[in-house]
């Protein structure tokens, strides 16, 4: 910083003596450089945006807290809080709870995608990206790619801790991997709901409020924590069509080796429907944002 100010003092001294100093030459040379690289494809620009998201993590590592601390906190909290009451023993409950709470945690941290985007919009950089001659979804796809890495990190931490606490998946490694793939596909699709909201809501606060309002009923009125058969019939109806329940069923089934093809298809289908609605909606809003 001190270097800089002395530099510009120097610049100021020579200002009146004409335009032929070294700095102006550098300026002219830099501006005269009219090199035009060929237009990059969508994959390249998406990866460049992913690189940007990684750089942001480098500067603010705390933003990984949701993918590291949350999973640990949630798992410990719910296992020991509800284990005794719901299943009679924490060890039994863990077998049932872990896949569910894994879904809940990942689904919750997808919300941060919308917040990032909302932040970009309130600052000017969003305008710059929109005036670049690039494949337009790449700014979102790039960010979502890095988010997928975050989700994987959260999943690894949670499953690792679960194994230490006594979680024993009957489906083995293959089952756990299948569960993770299903979950990541769903999380990627779900993120587009938050990008849509991120473009609509005017402030980060209102975005948080609405996201929570959507998230809470969806994750709690599901089969994450309890067997839906213990619920009143009218509530069971909601639980059955809740996409979170479908994902939990798929993930739980995969981990315990009892998943059916139908259950997998339901996860993929609900992901495709969400993506099919909210990805185009996001892109429409992105193009026409004021």
């Amino acid at each position: 910083m001190t270097n800089f100010s002395s530099h510009s003092d120097n610049n100021n001294d020579t200002e009146k003596s004409g335009n032929d100093n070294g700095l102006d030459e550098a300026l002219n040379k830099a501006i005269a450089n009219r090199m035009r690289p060929s237009k990059p494809n969508g994959i390249k620009t998406s990866l460049t945006f992913a690189w940007r998201a990684l750089l942001k993590i480098k500067y603010v590592p705390e933003q990984l807290m949701d993918a590291t601390v949350f999973p640990i906190m949630f798992l410990l909290m719910f296992t020991y809080l509800f284990g005794g009451a719901i299943a009679g023993s924490t060890a039994d409950y863990l077998q049932f709870l872990l896949p569910g709470i894994l879904v809940q945690t990942i689904v919750t941290i997808t919300m941060y995608t919308g917040i990032e985007l909302n932040n970009d919009i309130t600052k000017g950089i969003f305008d710059r990206f929109r005036t670049l001659p690039i494949w337009r979804p790449s700014v979102l796809v790039g960010a979502l790619l890095v988010d997928t890495v975050r989700y994987s990190l959260a999943a690894f931490i949670m499953i690792g801790l679960g194994l230490v606490l006594g979680f024993r998946p009957d489906g083995g490694l293959l089952g756990v991997l299948l569960a993770m793939v299903l979950l990541l596909i769903f999380a990627f699709s779900l993120s587009w709901i938050w990008t849509t909201l991120g473009l609509i809501m005017r402030t980060e606060k209102s975005l948080m409020g609405v996201s929570m309002m959507v998230m809470f009923p969806l994750t709690f009125i599901s089969n994450v924590f309890v067997d839906p058969e213990t619920l009143p019939t009218w509530l069971q109806g909601f639980v059955e069509v809740n996409p979170i329940s479908l994902v939990v069923t798929g993930v739980r089934g995969s981990m315990h080796g009892i998943v059916t093809l139908e259950e997998i298809v339901w996860v993929l289908l609900s992901s495709a429907i969400i993506l099919g609605i909210f990805a185009p909606l996001t892109m429409y809003l992105y193009r026409n944002k004021k």
Binding site: P37, T45, T48, K56, V60, D127, R128
Partner: peptide
């Protein structure tokens, strides 16, 4: 190219990272 009224660069990144970002996006 547009330079808006508000900072149209990523304030969290350094100067050179911002220019590399745009440069990469331009190909």
């Amino acid at each position: 190219s547009l330079t808006g009224q508000f900072a149209s660069v990523d304030e969290d990144l350094s100067g050179i990272e911002n220019l590399i970002l745009i440069g990469r996006l331009m190909g």
